[in-house]
Nucleic acid binder design. Sequence first.
DNA 1: CAGTGGTCTAGACCACCGA
DNA 2: CGGTGGTCTAGACCACTGT
Lengths: 237, 237
Amino acid sequence: MTNKYLTIYNSIVEQIKSGEIPPQTLLPSENELKDQYDTSRETIRKALNLLSQNGYIQKVRGKGSIVIDISKFDFPVSGLVSFKELASKMGMKPKTVVNELSLIKPDGFIRQQLQLGSKDLVWKVVRTREMGGEKIILDKDFVCHKFVPSLTEEICADSIYQYLENDLNLTISFAKKEIVVEEPTTEDRILMDLEGFHNVVVIKNYVYLDDATLFQYTESRHRPDKFRFVDFARRAH
Amino acid sequence: MTNKYLTIYNSIVEQIKSGEIPPQTLLPSENELKDQYDTSRETIRKALNLLSQNGYIQKVRGKGSIVIDISKFDFPVSGLVSFKELASKMGMKPKTVVNELSLIKPDGFIRQQLQLGSKDLVWKVVRTREMGGEKIILDKDFVCHKFVPSLTEEICADSIYQYLENDLNLTISFAKKEIVVEEPTTEDRILMDLEGFHNVVVIKNYVYLDDATLFQYTESRHRPDKFRFVDFARRAH
DNA sequence: CAGTGGTCTAGACCACCGA
DNA sequence: CGGTGGTCTAGACCACTGT
């Protein structure tokens, strides 16, 4: 079993989720945990810092680690807005329609977003995601061609990420998200069910590879009533 | 000077921001940095992990730490939506109007949000924030009375947080944010400039104290065209 | 293979909290 | 005051990367 601090982290998460360690109580001290798990204190601290970052506990100097009441959090603690997650969370069968799949010469905006040269090509993928019989999300992906030589409709109907990571061995390492609210374009109105809606929530996603190169720009355009974003933020200082 | 790893962190941040260490290049290795800063490797790693969490570098096993191109990021890497930040970022003079300040018996919704007993009182503060002559944000704060015995209009017109931290010695430790889009209420229409807008972006904020008790619930209601949220997220695994 | 970052250890000193 | 978490050290072994 690799990663001692991760197993300790998971162990404590389970104890908190099951209610074995109730909210507002103190965790055993770092020295006690060190003995319990037969490890060093720094390793315990690594596990506790993870718990703290993920909103399970609050560390207080001189007192101990307080378990936070997560029962109020009906949503995942971290703030990811993935279509599949949203769908499965609501117990619905997601359906994806590929509207467009083409290799294009990017316009100025996309070229700037992806920091490309004037002769680089990009894949353009437009997909609508349907839930409960309504088209509520429009995903527009722009993927650098130099990293992804081929792309098919079958792959897009499933999951692009899965293909990139499993088959192409590309490692997506991090992403920067930006959320803004915009008026729907005509394309939005045509491809989504927007009767009676005057805005769309746009999540602009900049995806980076393992070596810190930018390789994909994605716009996920949501119907506002089906959108929710959760952020669990520590204070700065 | 306290905190060795923080000074190292700041030192490297400066070097990245100034361009002394250009994007896409490798930082010196942890062992080299250890010698440069005359410290231990774990301390260097603490500083580097901070840099990584804040989006300045990307660590790759077996290779080194790559400096990320932050020049594209025209605003703060972390995703805080504070009125004052937004205003100063846009070079505008913010103006705050206190519409309501009262000590009330909370209705069911607020009592539930704040997990209060039936006889607890809360401060209700309603403020509009004005920028460029337009009222674009409506802030509704509900603060537990048991933590904050007194509150004046002067305090609310300035900054509630400053008062709590400096004068009352309460330490705000973390907050959970939730972003949704709603149709404007009549109150929104009356208190904000919403001509031609059909939605408001609502940021629900649950604020916790140092000892992990929930003490404030805030709704920040934004005009959609003046709203923007940035999230810098590491991949899960 | 040598060099990188990832994990883990055992010990030390400090600042803070509560009794 | 003893116990807590916060910082720092010097050293070890590992998995991974390039050549």
